[in-house]
Amino acid sequence: MIGNVLRWLNDPDNWNGTQFTTGIWAQLQTHLLYSVIAVLAALVIGLPLGLAIGHTGRATSLISGLNAVRALPTVGVLVLLVVIIAPHFHGRTSKGYIIPTLIVLILLAVPPILSNTYAGVQNVDPAVRDAAYGMGMTGPQVLWRVELPNSLPLIFSGLRSATLQVIATATIAAYVTLGGLGRFIYDGLAQQDYPQMISGGVLVAALALIADLVLALVQRYTVSRGLTKRFSKSTVGGAVAADLEEAGVEHT
């Protein structure tokens, strides 16, 4: 079986496509496109909302309310939305399917981003927030200069889990006739072509892994080292000697 999967994945025709089939490259692009649009939209919704709720402490019930959305059955919602939306589009357009798909993916991605952003802001040490105001920062300055940078670790973990979920779930686009890596899974299932089906799954997992790695890299260069505690060698190495030296000075 593994051999068959590898053979399927090694076939250039499967990657580039033929005149009858769409190749992996093209489906990968479609899959990525849906995922990126959904995650970006969720970020545009969830980040400002989470920051605002965390900063003001108002409308916190929205957080738990939106978390309930996570419990909705994805495919069910998709079908429902298609039934409602698709009839409004006529002719040779797939918008009637793309829009419901994107809505479902966005609904999936907003809660982790929103609740993690909120939690990040909430978790800022009250003494730190107090000091920020006490130094003379305005409300927006406290938000941008203190609360946001200190929330980044949690915001990134929300973003990463949203991304993983969206990439995995974007396979349902194929369920409503659209493209994406889900195509191989659904087609493979329908044609009892198990190597194709499994390859589809493997490709989704690989894409999710790569996306997560990229985000981890971005996180590494965005989050302050003061928060990640990955202190550079130069300050730590120097620190030990300096501490000794200082201890000597201090206790005389």
């Binding site: 040490d125 003494a127 000091a131 920020a132 105001y133 003379g136 940078p149 302050s224 003061g226 928060l227």
Partner: peptide
């Protein structure tokens, strides 16, 4: 007003990311 007044608190309240 606060920018003209020094303010020191018990647990320092330093900004961890700076």
């Amino acid at each position: 007003l606060r920018r003209t007044i020094g303010y020191v608190i018990q647990h320092a309240g330093l900004f961890p990311h700076r």
